[in-house]
């Protein structure tokens, strides 16, 4: 069982979300919803449960339903739990031309899961996504913020093995990234 964390940002994340809200005009703090949801997903367990979304609504002083309707529209928000490491393979035109379909099948076989599923050890979730603006280095996949490009079966296999060996949580929004750089001094 994963430990149950209270639904609350760390002081650091809270300060950061207030800074993000200040990027928009007075009274328009709702605009911060997308970045704050990314932060919530990274900080509070890798997915957006209803209580997490309610918490974000309270931070932004908006109705919970305004958060639900946004969270369900955008593909980067996970509305159910995911593995520590989400593999996002591009499945769109140019990547398909270069073999993305076979790549997905290869990963499914290697990890013994189907697209959309998570491995039994909770390490990997396999997703297919749309064009990630990396078509010149197709086929490719994204893990966390990193693009893995010009993949072959062997290269892909090695990459997955190295994530597994590290066993770390990998999310799009890493706290170090945000805390260092969303704090622009004007």
């Amino acid at each position: 069982m994963a430990e149950i964390k209270p639904i609350k940002f760390s002081d650091e994340a809270l300060a950061l979300s207030h800074k993000i809200m200040k990027r928009y005009p007075e009274g328009k703090q709702k605009s911060a919803i997308l970045p704050v949801l990314h932060l919530a997903q990274a900080e509070l367990g890798g997915w957006l449960s209803a209580p997490v979304m309610d918490y974000v609504a309270s931070l932004l002083s908006i109705q919970p339903v305004e958060v639900y309707e946004v969270a369900s529209f955008y593909s980067m928000y996970n509305l159910k739990p995911v593995g520590k490491c989400v593999i996002e393979v591009c499945r769109t035109g140019p990547c398909w031309l270069m073999g993305a379909e076979d790549l997905v099948k290869f990963i499914e076989k290697k990890l013994n899961i189907k697209e959309g599923q998570t491995t039994a050890d909770g390490m990997f979730t396999l997703k297919t996504v749309e064009c990630l603006a990396s078509c010149g280095t197709a086929p490719m996949m994204q893990i966390g913020e990193t693009y893995h490009e010009n993949l072959t079966f062997e290269k892909c296999s090695d990459i997955l093995d190295s994530y597994k060996a590290k066993g770390e949580n990998v999310s799009h929004w890493r706290k170090e990234r945000i805390t260092n750089h969303s704090d622009i001094k004007q």
Binding site: L34, H38, Y74, M76, V129, L132, A133, Q142, E145, T146, Y147, H172, W173, R174, R177, H181, S182, I184, K185
Partner: peptide, 16 residues
């Protein structure tokens, strides 16, 4: 794009 977190970070550094 949200997926381009790496470029997001590059831009923020440059803006600073």
């Amino acid at each position: 794009r949200g997926e381009m977190m790496y470029q997001f970070h590059i831009l923020e550094k440059a803006i600073q």
